[in-house]
């Protein structure tokens, strides 16, 4: 579905990604693990067209989407729920969700809105509240809900569990699995290594802009390197 080949990217003179190879198959949950500053968000932003890679290729369903503008990437069905949520604080919860289908999923807006509030009943209670006044956890729900409004085919989640209570984290991983069962593929960036590996099919580990480890999650869970650096055992 998504095929990233030898991707290089950075900010001005600073090189961050130094030849990333990574792929996601239809229907998979693929986790990306790595320490702070490894380049995870940079990779996401280059996939979704916020930044343009300096070299390499990104293919989506065989089509080259390298360097496309963000709205073109959204149109393809790659929906990026970014780190820090990036919801619209100055407009209502409802309007945030509606704008989720600004470009894609316009036709089924009503039905998708019902579906999102079915998943997050809390959002419906706060429909007319300004999104900036939501709690952190509610904002995270809104960010995911807004992404769902675009009828994604591949959803990129950048640290969705950040700032959530353990109970909510549990719920969120459950939700990802539920959505995955409906055919949605996920690229999941997480610090919650254990839980991500439990729900993911495969995982990649990134260090200093390079993939240093990858494979099926069952195998990775037994990997001594990973255990040492990420699980602290």
């Amino acid at each position: 579905m998504l095929d990233i080949q030898n991707l290089h990217a950075g900010y001005g003179q600073m090189k961050v990604l130094q030849g990333i190879d990574l792929n996601i198959q239809q229907g998979e949950i693929v986790a990306l693990l790595g320490s702070n500053g490894a380049g995870k968000s940079t990779l996401n932003n280059n996939i979704s067209g916020i930044y343009e890679p300096t070299a390499g290729a990104i293919l989506f369903e065989g089509e080259n989407i390298t360097g496309l503008r963000s709205e073109q990437v959204v149109q393809k069905g790659i929906i990026h729920v970014p780190e820090g949520r990036r919801i619209f604080p100055n407009i209502s919860v409802r309007e945030n969700l509606e704008l989720g289908s600004y470009l894609r999923g316009q036709k089924n807006r009503k039905a998708n809105l019902d579906r999102v509030v079915g998943v997050f009943p809390r959002l419906q209670e706060r429909f007319s509240q300004l999104a900036g006044t939501l709690s952190g956890g509610e904002q995270q729900m809104l960010a995911i809900g807004r992404g769902m409004m675009a009828e994604p085919r591949l959803m990129i989640l950048d640290e969705p569990s950040l700032g959530l209570s353990p109970l909510l984290v549990e719920e969120m991983f459950g939700l990802i699995q539920d959505l995955n069962k409906t055919g949605l593929s996920f690229f999941l960036v997480e610090q919650n290594v254990m839980q991500s590996l439990e729900i993911a099919d495969r995982a990649y580990v990134i260090e200093n802009g390079k993939i240093v480890l990858s494979g099926n999650t069952d195998a990775l869970l037994d990997d001594p390197e990973l255990k040492k650096s990420y699980l602290g055992v």
Partner: peptide
């Protein structure tokens, strides 16, 4: 209108706007 909402959204959160496909 969607355009009106997009105008208000862009006023505060440009990157978020790009990620929902707003030019």
């Amino acid at each position: 209108t969607d355009t009106g909402k997009a105008i208000r959204a862009v006023a505060k959160e440009r990157q978020g706007a790009r990620l929902v496909g707003i030019n």
